[in-house]
Design a protein around this nucleic acid. Structure first.
Lengths: 357, 357
DNA sequence: TATTGCTGATATTAGCAAATATCAATCAGC
DNA sequence: GCTGATTGATATTTGCTAATATCAGCAATA
């Protein structure tokens, strides 16, 4: 019975002791000493507590807090794929940069969509102080979050859940499609071809929808002959461009649903002897690296994965900070990058030229 | 003093109780019940222990084991960058696929080369059962491993340490440079230009060295006028090609130290009216996505990051399995991808044509 | 009634102690 | 001396318990 067992009033004093000395409850002492924001405390009480604590030589040890302030916290980024495109890396970097501003570390795991693997990995990580989880997919799509992750704070990037249980951050493909089309219209084009991405993919659907909206808003009739199916590959851009240009009334501009198809489109136009942008303007989508290096440089729209990652991390950090909002669907705008493939305007009164890069 | 405090012989029996009943030590009971491999036990003792355990109704609860059998193990992949190129993702995927074969999970963290951050994150991860650490860099370079990580099993990917304390896996740039040059020589070219990467970068240095070795092995004199400095960007490929073609005795083939410069090289050659590969053959390096889509498709060499990742994971898993070897430097070969930009052979007796893709 | 100041009840954690694994050292028998 | 069997010592882990955070709700006051 010596050093290991604590006597009644020996050993380090606790909040209970301080409370007794100050004539208040333990809860009050906690509120005073931990400086909880928003606590309503009388100055007199606060003073008495502090005095008692000092008198007893009380040493404050933080406990019972979910996220120990100053301690490490971690965000786990779960991706379904990584290698094909830079998108996932960009989203991760965006989230990481935001997290780092708050001193929060980030981990990435790649699940290839395997729910068991996800549960498994996250289960193993439960020993860490996890602030939350960002769940990102290569394709914009519906996802099902494994129930094993249900107790974590989750934000979805480039995907969405059926029951709107989580925040999700999506690219503004529809608005992007409209912006691209309107950019062509503003530079005086009137007959705009559209080469779509793979059927069944959300991005393809929305970009087409945006294309249609822009035409409608500008009182131009939608001509189904100008819309061609594609598959994101340069070969499709090449073939579909040949088809479009073979029409009786060929387009004076082509909107390719991604940059790779625009590369194929360039090849076809050059082969036909059409000048870009003088005869046909071309705009892509995604702002892939290559867009800067085509001849002429390709106008396109940024797929804002970096910004989406940042936003996701911010949502997570806010939620951890106690800001509880209903799950929202946030769309991040796809910025227009006007390069020379859409030319300087051919016709009258148009917008001011936008600097490239 | 009721249910919460345990009485001497009440409550669940422990190994100590079983040991006392069987007249052996706790250690012996542990050896019997946990079936430790390689333990030398007398059958009589084993029988007595099992009997005593049964008699007492002892329930076995496993504790105190470092890696709970069947429990997860994890490899942490530390990268200095991710977004610019697909290399890091490829290395990660390679390592991940190998790890998955063994049921081992992988995590990725991006440190931007910040040693404090690395120590910090890994420190936080120490609670997990970490099998080892793969440390990858975007540029092939010398790295210094923070001392905080010294107690972990580490394999370096695309980088190396001063004191050869760790395994490292590197790309075979030198051999690759030789292979590329020999491929051009084999197709009958004799005057081969070389557009180098950024000065001071290991990959640029080694690819040039390989180029020189190939020339020397084929008894062709090295002509400094045919070697031009570059910076990995298409613009450099474009300008340096113009310079090379303006020589009194222009090259009949150009080896660009990466694919992006080869794209610029293509532009310059087309502008000059030179046919590829008939007038000038072109070969790149890296096998970037774009190489399939140039006109004609670009011959190039694979930068084997995927394979390097796989190899790294394998080394780590072997080490964890008890295979202790001296730290080695493993170079992974850069495979030649022969497409049309190096043409079918122009001259006599050459190797069999290699299928594209 | 609205607001302020506080507390009881409950969720959560840090630290601890007991339980177990492991291995080098020891022991007994030949 | 040699070899197989056992144990003491120690590292590691799990569950337990006291300490702390937090919030709804109560009482007093304006």
């Amino acid at each position: 019975m010596s050093k290991s067992k604590r006597q009644v009033s020996v050993g380090r004093p606790t909040m209970m002791d301080v409370a007794a000395a100050a004539g208040v409850s333990q809860a009050t002492v906690s509120l005073v000493l931990s400086g909880t924001k928003g606590a309503r405390l009388a100055d007199a009480t606060r003073g008495r507590v502090l005095e008692a604590a000092q008198a007893l030589g009380y040493r404050f040890v933080r406990r019972g807090t979910k996220a120990p302030p100053g301690g490490q916290s971690t965000i786990v980024f779960v991706a379904d794929e990584t290698s094909t495109d830079p998108w996932m890396s960009l989203a991760f970097e965006g989230a990481r940069d935001k997290a780092l501003e708050y001193g929060i570390n980030m981990l990435m795991v790649v699940s290839h969509g395997d729910a068991d693997l996800e549960s498994n990995i996250i289960g193993g990580l439960k020993k860490l102080p996890i602030l939350g989880l960002i769940y990102g997919t290569i394709l914009t799509r519906l996802v099902q979050i494994p129930s094993a992750l249900a107790d974590l704070s989750i934000v979805l990037v480039n995907c969405y859940d059926e029951h709107r249980e989580h925040h999700c951050v999506l690219p503004g493909d529809l608005l992007g499609g409209r912006t691209a089309t309107e950019h062509l219209l503003l530079s005086g084009r009137r007959r705009i071809g559209f080469i779509n991405g793979q059927q069944g993919v959300d991005a393809a659907r929305d970009r087409l929808k945006g294309y249609k909206q822009a035409l409608a808003s500008n009182d131009i009739a939608f001509d189904p002959a100008l819309v061609r199916p594609g598959n994101w590959e340069p070969s499709a851009g090449y073939e579909m461009t040949l088809e479009l240009m073979a029409l009786d009334n060929p387009p004076d501009a082509i909107f390719c649903a991604n940059d790779m198809m625009a590369v194929g489109c360039f090849d076809a136009l050059k082969q036909l002897g059409a000048r870009i942008p003088d005869d046909v303007a071309v705009i892509g989508f995604d702002d892939r690296n290559i867009a800067q290096y085509t001849h002429p440089p390709l106008s396109t729209l940024v797929l804002p994965l970096y910004e989406m990652g940042r936003t996701a991390a911010e949502l997570l950090i806010d939620a951890a900070g106690g800001l509880h909002t209903n799950p929202s669907r946030i769309k991040v705008e796809c910025e227009l990058i006007a390069r020379q493939s859409t030319g300087t305007q051919r016709f009258a009164d148009v917008e001011a030229p936008v600097a490239a890069q």
